[in-house]
């Protein structure tokens, strides 16, 4: 489903000296471990085709991609409903289901910049899940989440991996241990 053949990642200069190759499929949860700035996020972007590799190629058989990181913008007048509906056709049942799973109880007419960081992070994850992704990239998903929510997220990831290939970077080793099927160390 996702295949990388000897890719060099980076912007103008390669971030890593060696190339990366690999082939991944549904059911896998790959955890990426390493220090800040070694190229975990760049690697994810390259796999998601948000960025071109310097050399090598990426084969991705689906365009149902979920992506969670800190880059999504809150917008000044963006309501919760806007945030989870722009560009996605999500049903009321789906929304209610995920709101329940993440135990957030907010009116959908509220503006997102009124939410706490933790609530907003959960909302970001919900938005990506509403896309019903076949590949899900999670870049530091546990930031701002409390212990309970982390447990919940781990559980959800376990359920999701049946139908989805998941990549995740994290510095939370306990969380990594809970979800991983394999790891890549940088």
């Amino acid at each position: 489903m996702l295949e990388a053949s000897s890719i060099h990642i980076g912007y103008q200069k390669p971030l890593l000296s060696e190339t990366i190759s690999g082939s991944w499929n549904k059911g896998e949860v790959i955890v990426l471990l390493g220090d800040n700035g070694v190229g975990k996020s760049t690697f994810l972007k390259t796999l998601a085709k948000l960025q071109k590799p310097i050399s090598g190629s990426v084969e991705l058989t689906t365009d149902k991609i979920g992506w969670v990181d800190a880059s999504i913008s809150k917008g000044v007048y963006l309501s919760v409903f806007d945030f989870i509906s722009f560009g996605i056709s999500s049903t009321k049942e789906d929304i209610d289901y995920w709101f329940n799973r993440f135990e957030i109880n907010i009116e959908t007419s509220r503006f997102v910049d009124e939410l706490s960081d933790g609530q907003f992070r959960k909302l970001c994850i919900i938005r990506q899940l509403l896309k019903r992704p076949e590949v899900l990239f999670l870049d530091e998903p546990t930031v701002y989440l409390d212990v309970k929510s982390k447990k919940q997220l781990a559980l959800i990831i376990q359920e999701l991996k049946e139908s989805c290939l998941i990549f995740c970077t994290t510095h939370d080793l306990l969380f990594a241990e809970e979800i991983k099927t394999s790891t890549i160390e940088f």
């Binding site: 998601a48 948000l50 991609i65 992506w67 990181d69 880059s71 999504i72 913008s73 917008g75 963006l78 806007d82 945030f83 722009f86 560009g87 996605i88």
Partner: peptide
């Protein structure tokens, strides 16, 4: 309109969805 809606969420979403 729809394109601009997604645009307001950032370039990453735009690249993923359109």
């Amino acid at each position: 309109a729809t394109w601009l809606n997604i645009y307001s969420l950032g370039d990453t979403e735009l690249k993923l969805l359109t």
